[in-house]
């Protein structure tokens, strides 16, 4: 994972060429929607990965920043007709600011306290969105969010949406990749493993964690901005605690600290529940099972930085399914 990876280029090629081609050849509007959702979830997972995998903070507040970015974009574009670059910048900046403000007291907390506090934030956010009807239109949801606009152009149709999302998501994941594999990422990992030792080396664990937290909030907020346009409709139900669990599952399945893993995890948590849909409303059941089974059987994905791909490859080789 330390190579500047051809894997990254491979991933970009798959997302920008192979998937659109497949969607164009065999796809449906439904499949395109799922593909967009996978990409957005992957950005969330990558951002959460930065926090858990690198800074070691187990957080359940995905929906706070994701929802914040989504509602912010919905309000801006509906009321002021903003365009894509403005919205992305606004979501990123406002997300970072909110993350910084909330993170300041929060990141000092020891692991379990931090997890509970973020859980509390998620519930506070949901209650606020549900009840601040003047701003969010409450339980009825925010309808009729316009399509992406780039300058004078309105982007519609699945291909345009897909490419906007793909480019922004890849950009976001690239940022996480650069941060993780830099001096900065190593400093954060050092602070995660041993705060006292990091302090003795002149690093400030609090500042490092706060920065990671703000960056993660900013990226999640951008993911929310994408979601608002992609979906045209927001409801408080999109931002309940369970959805934070979904992102967490994607991270765990994909493997902590592994960015290709974020995409694989997102693919699994979006597609498997969809496959279960014919059996009834088993979405939550489905990802509960995924989370459980992956913790049990892929424990290395949980607490060591193993690329999931390497793991899968090793297993396939061992089983003799693939020849080296």
């Amino acid at each position: 994972m330390n190579r500047p990876l051809p894997l990254g280029w491979l991933l970009a090629a798959v997302i920008l060429v192979v998937v659109p081609a497949a969607l164009w050849l065999f796809g449906s509007a439904y499949a395109a929607r799922l593909a967009q959702l996978v990409l957005i979830t992957a950005l969330l997972a990558a951002a959460l990965n930065l926090l858990i995998g690198t800074a070691g903070l187990l957080s359940l507040d995905t929906v706070v920043y994701y929802g914040f970015g989504a509602y912010l974009t919905a309000i801006l574009s509906t009321n002021y007709g903003t365009t894509l670059p403005t919205e992305i910048l606004a979501a990123a900046a406002a997300g970072a600011l909110l993350g910084g403000l909330i993170g300041w007291p929060l990141v000092r907390l020891a692991s379990i306290f931090f997890a509970v506090a973020t859980m509390g934030l998620a519930t506070i956010f949901h209650t606020t969105v549900l009840n601040w009807v003047d701003l969010t239109r409450g339980p009825m949801g925010y309808r009729g969010i316009p399509a992406f606009k780039l300058g004078e152009f309105t982007i519609d149709g699945w291909a345009g949406n897909y490419y906007v999302i793909a480019v922004v998501v890849l950009g976001g994941v690239w940022i996480v990749h650069r941060l993780t594999h830099s001096y900065y990422g190593n400093a954060m990992r050092a602070a995660r493993e041993d705060e006292d030792c990091a302090r003795a080396m002149g690093l400030s664990p609090h500042a490092l964690k706060l920065q990671a937290y703000a960056v993660h909030a900013s990226l999640m907020s951008v993911a929310g901005a994408l979601y608002a346009h992609a979906n045209n409709f927001l409801s408080p139900d999109n931002f309940v605690l369970l959805e934070s669990g979904l992102t967490l599952t994607a991270v765990v399945v994909g493997g902590l600290g592994s960015l290709p893993g974020a995409f694989i995890g997102a693919l699994v948590v979006v597609l498997v529940p969809e496959l279960l849909r014919p059996l009834g409303n088993l979405r939550a059941f489905g990802f509960g099972m995924i989370l459980f089974l992956s913790i049990l059987f892929l424990p290395r994905g949980l607490w060591s930085e193993v690329s999931s791909l390497a793991f899968v490859r090793r297993h396939l080789f061992r089983e003799g399914w693939l020849k080296r």
Partner: peptide, 19 residues
């Protein structure tokens, strides 16, 4: 590692049980 693994496994089991 074990603390966080059991936190997640019980969270997952809780979701499965509830559903």
């Amino acid at each position: 590692a074990v603390r966080e693994a059991t936190l997640l496994s019980s969270l997952a089991l809780g979701i499965v049980g509830r559903e």
